[in-house]
Design a binder for these strands. Structure first.
Length: 369
DNA sequence: GTATGCTTTCGGC
DNA sequence: TTACGGCCGAAAGCATAC
């Protein structure tokens, strides 16, 4: 059993960089890729901005109108998201990355983990050269830059990739892991959210280094065996999570913004059913069945609310989906007095249809041995 | 007590 | 002065099971 070498490849400011590639004259201007909600002209939020725009404080998630204010008087370009175009580019780049990996795991549209232990023979100089080759291949074949983190596992590779970007390459060798992680805030560890951060702070652990000095037993007392052990391991850079193909998504959802805020069930369902149709057609395309249905409401004050229901048995039925969505919105409206600004629907607990049938067949047909 | 499953909320991109 | 998406998986809280 050899020590692993894992890479995390992150495509830089992905949507905006795709737009720069399509129209290179944008390159020296602020480029702001926006999700327009359609409620009013320019209502919506910024999805991604290039680094020229970021210098002006234009970051992901801010309102489009705020971005325009920050860029007032500047020769900036605002574009709507073109997800299909980005998806095409992503697919081609992921193919390149996959060809350089022993094992490959795509995470979202612009990130992937690669296990490169075998082909680098566990050698970090080899890994550095491979990473440089990958960056060069992506640049010459698809004209996009990326940032790569290299380390002994996914946890370290992911954090390393964040150290230098855009166009970064950061290696953290096993003997460097401790000094690399020590000064970082505990919040950077996967599994540490706001509440856990608070709890750890109370215990006196703000940084990963401070967490590492805690007795495992103490952590187990506070967080339970599973999480306590996990936190201890993470704090000293131990992470055994394998790089694994992610074949299917865990959930499929659609959300959209209403013309105006409302509590009118008919208006809400009219929109929600359209979303159901779209989610359902994606389900069929992928040959998936669902076991849970959720609805989502963003209120006028932008607070989020949801309701969900899980069935005993999986189904792919559209009418069941819509009926459940209706029940959940009725439930939500009776329990809450907020007005809906955006409404969404989601299916989760997904499974491949054929595999389900295989399981049933196996169970009923071939289990008598 | 700890694990597991379900529901709701949070937060990254 | 305010302004505000869409999608995903992770986190957190709770109930129940072992």
């Amino acid at each position: 059993m050899q020590a692993r070498i894992v890479m995390l490849v992150d495509l830089d400011y992905f949507y905006a960089q795709c737009e720069e590639r399509r129209n290179p004259s944008l390159k020296d201007k602020p480029v702001v890729v926006c999700v327009y909600s359609g409620r009013t002209e320019d209502s919506g939020a910024v999805s991604t901005a290039n680094y020229v725009a970021r210098k002006y404080g234009v970051n992901s998630g801010i309102p489009i109108l705020l971005a325009k204010k920050k860029l007032k008087g500047i020769d900036a370009v605002f574009l709507p998201v073109d997800k299909e175009f980005y998806r095409e580019i992503s697919d081609k780049i992921m193919e390149i990355l996959r060809s350089h990996a022993d094992r490959f795991e795509q995470v979202g549209i612009d990130e992937a983990y690669m296990d490169v232990t075998q082909r680098t023979k566990g050698n970090y100089q080899g890994a550095k050269e491979l990473a440089a080759t990958i960056k060069n291949d992506v640049l010459t074949q698809q004209q996009l830059s990326c940032s790569i983190g290299v380390g002994p596992n996914k946890l370290v590779a992911k954090i390393a990739a964040d150290i230098q970007k855009p166009d970064g390459l950061t290696l953290v060798k096993p003997e460097e892991v401790e000094s690399f992680l020590s000064p970082l805030h505990v919040r950077r560890l996967v599994g540490v959210g706001k509440k856990t951060e608070k709890k750890l702070e109370t215990l006196g652990a703000r940084t990963v280094g401070q967490l590492a000095r805690f007795d495992v037993q103490k952590l187990i007392e506070v967080f339970g065996r599973k999480m306590g052990t996990y936190f201890h391991n993470a704090s000293v850079g131990i992470d055994e999570e394998p790089v694994q193909e992610r074949s299917e998504p865990e959930s499929l959802s659609r959300i959209s913004t209403l013309k105006e805020d409302t509590r009118d069930l008919a208006v809400i369902l009219n929109e929600a059913y359209k979303l159901c149709n779209e989610v359902h057609s994606k389900l069929l395309q992928r040959g998936l069945v669902y076991r849970s249905v959720s609805i989502y409401v963003v209120a006028g004050d932008l607070s989020g609310h949801s309701r969900s229901k899980t069935f005993e048995n999986p189904t792919s039925d559209l009418e069941t989906f819509k009926k459940t969505v209706k029940e959940l919105f009725e439930k939500f409206l009776s329990e809450s007095d907020v007005e809906a600004r955006r409404v969404g629907v989601k299916v989760s607990n997904l499974n491949k249809k054929e595999e389900l049938q295989k399981q049933i067949t196996n169970f009923f047909g071939f289990s008598n041995h």
